[in-house]
Simulated scan of single mutants.
Amino acid sequence: MHRAAFGLPATTLLLTVISASPALAEPPAPPSTAIARTELAALTVAAPHSMDGYARDKFDIWSTQPNGCTTRQAVLARDGKDVQDKPDGCQPASGSWYSAYDDTTVTDVAQATIDHMVPLAEAWRSGADTWTADQRKAFGNDLKDPQLLIASESANSSKSDSGPADWKPTNQAFWCTYAKDYTHIKAVWKLTTTDQEKTALSSMLDTCTN
């Protein structure tokens, strides 16, 4: 996705405004069921850490990417369909976004929220409280791993800071992918789990067909 250059002829600028955003990389694919089960078994079970000192801004979410757009805008462009940009070349003006949590499609960009698969607060209580500021920023803006996804406002609000021990997507067809992705994020970032969370993730992995 490129920013509109200053000094372009009006006709060129108009084409930039109405053209669809160039295709970006697909969202990271979930690991196989076998890998997810291996990763889940290897997670360290530990008591949740204190939430003392926690604040969302300590993860510096939606920071600026190398192309000048924010992480949020990058996910909207990556995961949207028929996305068209505003003149700045970053913020979508229109498009549609699928929320797998509740099997709904959002057509108002303002209602297409970006969710952290492993909530920031959950990361904090499972190890991120000991990270450096750079590590937390990398986690909060992780485009490499399946950590950021589209969610409808209602689904995002329902999930809030809960992990799978206390919340599951209403779309049960997504349980397999949710469990794989959630487990993978915890494994990659070396976050701990609890017995309750581990049981919930294992149960949802049982819904996988492969």
Rank of each mutant, 00 (worst) to 15 (best):
Y54L: 00
A55D: 01
A55Y: 11
R56S: 14
K58L: 15
D60E: 09
I61G: 09
S63H: 05
S63E: 15
C69I: 09
T70G: 11
T71E: 06
T71V: 06
R72C: 05
V75F: 05
R78D: 11
D79P: 08
D79M: 10
D79V: 08
V83R: 07
Q84L: 07
D85H: 15
K86P: 07
K86T: 10
P87R: 10
D88L: 02
G89H: 00
C90I: 12
A93E: 13
G95A: 07
G95S: 04
S96H: 00
W97V: 02
Y98H: 15
Y101E: 04
D102R: 10
D103K: 15
V109R: 13
Q111L: 13
D115F: 01
M117S: 08
M117L: 10
M117Y: 09
V118N: 01
P119W: 02
L120H: 10
A121V: 02
A121I: 09
A121S: 14
A121M: 15
A128T: 12
T130P: 10
D134Y: 00
D134N: 00
Q135D: 03
Q135R: 14
Q135K: 10
Q135P: 04
R136Y: 05
F139T: 10
G140T: 07
N141P: 00
D142M: 03
L143W: 15
K144Y: 13
P146C: 07
I150W: 07
S152M: 11
A155P: 14
A155C: 10
S157I: 14
S157L: 15
